[in-house]
Structures are given as C-alpha cells and as structure tokens.
Amino acid sequence: MSKEMIVCKGISKSFPGANGSTLEVLKDISLSINENEFVVVLGPGQCGKTTLINLIAGLEMPTSGNVTVAGNPITKPNPDIGVVYQKTALFPWLSVQSNVGFGPMMKGMKKDERKKIVQHYIDLVGLTGFEKSYPIKLSGGMRQRVGIARAYCNNPSVLLMDEPFGHLDAQTRYLMQEEVVRIWEADKKTILFVTNNVEEAVYLADRIIVLSNCPTHIVTEFDVTLPRPRDYVSRDFLSLRKTVNDSLERTR
C-alpha cells in the first residue's frame, strides 16, 4: 500500500466579491494523492484550479477543510512543495543557472555547493549550454524547462504544476509532455498537474480527477493504466480520451 502524500479534506474557498457578496471558488474538494503518483486535475473553466494549487502550496488558506502534505498540515509555504506556474514565473533578472539555483540560495547554500546540483537539473531538463542565458532569450518551451528545473532543484517531494504548457504552441506542447514524463521517470516525485486539455491529461496521468466549473467540485475520477510511453493515436488512448471528454461539463 503506497503512502498518501497529498490529502485534501473537504476544502472550500470563497473570496469576497463585489458589494459584499462572496464568490465561492472551490466547493468541498476531497482528494488524496499517493507518493510518486502523477495525478492530473482536469478542469474546464477559468476558476478554481490555480486556487487549488495555491491552497496545497500553502500560499492561501482554505475557508473550510484542511490540507496535509506528507502528514503535515499546510499552514504556510513549504520548500518541500515545489510549484511550476503557467508563465512569467521565471525571474527575468536572473540567468538560467541562477533561476534554477534560487531555492538552494534561499536556504543559504553557498554558490560553489549549488553549482553541481544546479548543473545536474539543467542537464536533466535538456538545457545544457544555456546556463548563462537570460529568460528573455529563451523560447516558451525552454522557459518551462527552466521552471521545472527550478522546482526540481529544491528537491521537493511534491510538485504542483499549474497549466505549465498552456501558452506553448502545439508542437512544443507535445514535446514538453514527453519531457515531463521522462523527467518524472528519471526522478520520481508526487506530481499534481493542472490542465484544461483532455489529451494532455490522458497522456500524462496515472489518475485523472475531473473538476466542474465554478464553484469547482470533483465530478469524477479515471485511473489511467495505459503503458508508457503512450501513443496519442492508439485506439485505447483515443477511446479513453473520448470517455474523459464526455465527462466534462459543457460550458460556454
């Protein structure tokens, strides 16, 4: 029996809206993610997904319910939980290697100590040769590689990924999906990956959790047992893709 890594129990989150009303974003979400499991949270709408990430990361507190990671209740951000964001999350004033080494630097690790592990993760994500480049010189896919390396470099046990490939062109997106599976297989973490793309979810996940639109709650779950590396156009892949797609709410 594998260990439960992320556990959310009945979490809801509301924000104050206009004229004293409240906007309910998450409603009674309970989920549990095992150690080294790759779980994709698939949500159609614009609301709730980043909030879910922020609640698990400890950047925001739930209105009700609670979150634990590795058995510890989450009350504030924790270096054991890494986050990869959709865009603009790299520090533009730092080179690739300084971005990747940011976590260890916050821990007070010396520069020459950092150098080796930074290089390891730059190599892992395939950015060897770009150590001294600044993010502005990199393509969208390369920037996301830096984001992943930066999160990995801090050696968290949990990685939260908030639509990391949402802004990439289709080709780069396929490539990055393959890459993220390769990196995960090389260095296993518990990953919670948020997306609104059904194909991406089926390609990546051990398990897919389908969310509704606002207020977000869990609609259903799918276990994905297709062997890796997966084939985007195999019959099993396409049939699962259709099943998952049919479970999504139609929203305008």
């Binding site: 950047l59 890494g82 964001y85």
Partner: peptide, 20 residues
C-alpha cells in the same frame, strides 16, 4: 507570481525584498 515562487522556496520577507 514572483513573490509566490519565492515563498514556495521558503524565502523570508527580507529575502523577498532583496532577492525579488
């Protein structure tokens, strides 16, 4: 988002000011 990133890396408030 930059402040969030720093926070998830456990940055202190002082580090958030000087490094972000």
């Amino acid at each position: 988002v930059h402040l969030w990133v720093a926070q998830t890396f456990g940055a202190t408030r002082r580090q958030m000011l000087f490094d972000v």
